[in-house]
């Protein structure tokens, strides 16, 4: 039990770390939102799963399940609200621009 819990804890730290790196590295609002909210979601979910496995089937794990369900409902709504307000505000999404050498000049 404890070993599985450690695996999930490690996964949680791993995803949180990469989420934060992505937050710093990506170029604009949308991509940063993706990196931060998504990796945070995965890390928190794996933390919840690990705690549920550690506690077994008890009253505390049922409460953790309820918290996890509410988290599943609210977290995407929050990131959707930020993304939507940015999109309605007219912020253009960043696009990768190809180098000149990559574009063929046949046309």
């Amino acid at each position: 039990m404890i070993f599985i819990f450690y695996i999930f804890l490690f996964l949680s730290i791993f995803f949180a770390f990469f989420g934060n790196i992505g937050m710093l590295r990506f170029p604009d609002v949308y991509t940063r939102l993706q990196a931060s909210s998504k990796c945070a979601t995965t890390s928190l979910l794996s933390l919840f799963i690990g705690l549920m496995i550690l506690k077994g089937f008890s009253s505390i794990s049922v409460r953790i399940l309820v918290i996890a369900i509410f988290f599943l409902l609210t977290s995407p709504v929050a990131s959707h609200a930020i993304g939507r307000s940015a999109y309605e505000g007219g912020i253009l999404p960043w696009r990768r621009v190809r180098k000149k050498e990559d574009i063929s000049e046949d046309k």
Binding site: L33, Q34, T42
Partner: peptide, 21 residues
């Protein structure tokens, strides 16, 4: 829409009737 947002790599920007951005 929520499960698309929850999946890393995709983010729902707008949901208008049956039209998703």
């Amino acid at each position: 829409a929520n499960s698309i947002t929850l999946t890393p790599g995709t983010l729902t920007l707008d949901l208008d009737n049956d039209h998703l951005i």
